[in-house]
Nucleic acid binder design. Sequence first.
DNA 1: CTTGACCTTCCTGTAACTGGAAGGTGTATA
DNA 2: TATACACCTTCCAGTTACAGGAAGGTCAAG
Lengths: 136, 136
Amino acid sequence: MKIQEFSRQTSLSAKTIRYYEAIGILPPPRRAPNGYREYDEGHLERAHFVAGARSLELSLGEISELLAMQNRREAPCRTMLDQIRRKADQIAERISLLQQMEKDLRKLYKLGLTFPTDDVDGKDCICHLVKERRTA
Amino acid sequence: MKIQEFSRQTSLSAKTIRYYEAIGILPPPRRAPNGYREYDEGHLERAHFVAGARSLELSLGEISELLAMQNRREAPCRTMLDQIRRKADQIAERISLLQQMEKDLRKLYKLGLTFPTDDVDGKDCICHLVKERRTA
DNA sequence: CTTGACCTTCCTGTAACTGGAAGGTGTATA
DNA sequence: TATACACCTTCCAGTTACAGGAAGGTCAAG
């Protein structure tokens, strides 16, 4: 299949696929006589792995490591499992940060509604609130 | 005050301060005879505004717009208020995405624990699960 | 007089792509 | 047969918000 079909089946953009190939995340496929990339089933598997890992927010660096382990015939499962746990923890942390931020923003918005919206000097408007903001 | 003190009072790194100056987010301060940057109270105000807005996850582009409005003597409060609401919505959306992702990861981890960790071919281990993963 | 903490500018690198230019290819249609 | 159109290719540049580091000037203390 050509790159666009491959793109559809992996839900990676053609740009991304070429990029992954360029940095060695995906192996270069064979070329048709006209120079077009030609993919087959085997390519799909690896691309799915990469896409799946990306969707779990593993970085390309982390994914490369896992792939390298596979290439060295080491079982990456344990490593992968650990990374998955670490990722989950990281995400939990980000969530609570974002929740705090959302709370701040909503509060600020409500407060801002009670303020004049034409105070150019910003002494008595929401802009002032933003200035006074501290990461609390 | 010199840049390091300014840095302390704004909790922006010196690098970041110079960067903001270079891209026009912060105005260039006067220079001491030796070429050192010299900041005063007025500079603090704007830097606090920028730092506050950044802590609310406004991009530098969005912040520039707000500053430009202030420069044009337009009251940016209404715009700012709108941006704050939009940001809050965006963040809420990201939170639910991340929550889903965390749930997926935890599930995957638990499942992974029940799998062998030395399956090099990945037919029956967590790597396989990652491959099969669909954004569901 | 030297050590150390500052300060300066300038250049490079980061992550993970995306956009666009310039040009070749393959097929359907007027 | 011409041409329109959707593909494909490579390569270069830009994005975001900085951080790292080199090379060098400045200032106070010991």
